[in-house]
Design a protein around this nucleic acid. Structure first.
Lengths: 108, 108
DNA sequence: ACATGGTATCTTGCATTGCAAGGTATATTG
DNA sequence: CAATATACCTTGCAATGCAAGATACCATGT
């Protein structure tokens, strides 16, 4: 899987998952990994950054199946950021699509 | 425009334009800029890299409107790379789309 | 002759992000 | 008490895009 394609998109994926419900880091890795190849070394620093930017808050919760889980919850700013990024992503993919379509030899 | 989204995708865009016809750098900047915000400082180093990787060859041609143009032509390897990258991109966007769809609150 | 602007090329150093490779700790199972 | 799954974390590297420059050719205007 092309690493470069993921740049910036994983942030959108995380925010998008958190719009649905609060999640803990390990859970995000598991869920996103179903579709996109990622590892913990990617997600944990990303979560730290997004929290520092004020897009999410955290709270600890016991799990009974291991160490306590750190849940992430979007702030209002985080929800707004998710909408912005989503729009940008959709616009971007449409633009790229048009650039690729513009190729008449493309009969894949 | 989100800079990170472009990572790796501009390579695909350039290769895709060159499948259609040979282009010179300034022309690629102009054409791609219609859809995606880019600058020369991005394209020229990219073209250099792709040539070094054996994906394209170059030839000079006088223009009459300024200095000579350096045209880029895809090699067989370049055409193959374009198909691979295109497939990866399509798969990737579908995967991201499913992750975003998975959000029942998304009524944008 | 000289300035301006469009065409066309290029380089350098920085900022950002994803990842491999490690580490720590808790609960369960054998 | 070792192994496994769960769950957290950090460090340094690799890759890419970009701003900000530099150079040079050609046409037009002053």
């Amino acid at each position: 899987m092309n690493i470069q394609f993921k740049k910036g998109v994983l942030e959108l994926c995380v925010l998008s998952m958190l719009v649905r419900k609060d999640c803990y880091g390990y859970e995000l890795v598991y869920e996103i990994s179903k579709r996109i190849d990622i590892s913990e070394g990617t997600i944990y620093p990303l979560l730290r950054r997004l929290k520092e930017e004020g897009l999410m808050s955290t709270y600890l919760q016991e799990s009974g199946e291991g160490p306590p889980r750190k849940y992430y919850a979007l702030t209002d700013q985080g929800r707004q950021k998710e909408r912005e990024l989503r729009d940008e992503w959709l616009n971007f993919t449409v633009s790229v699509g048009k650039l690729l379509e513009a190729n008449p030899n493309a009969v894949h």
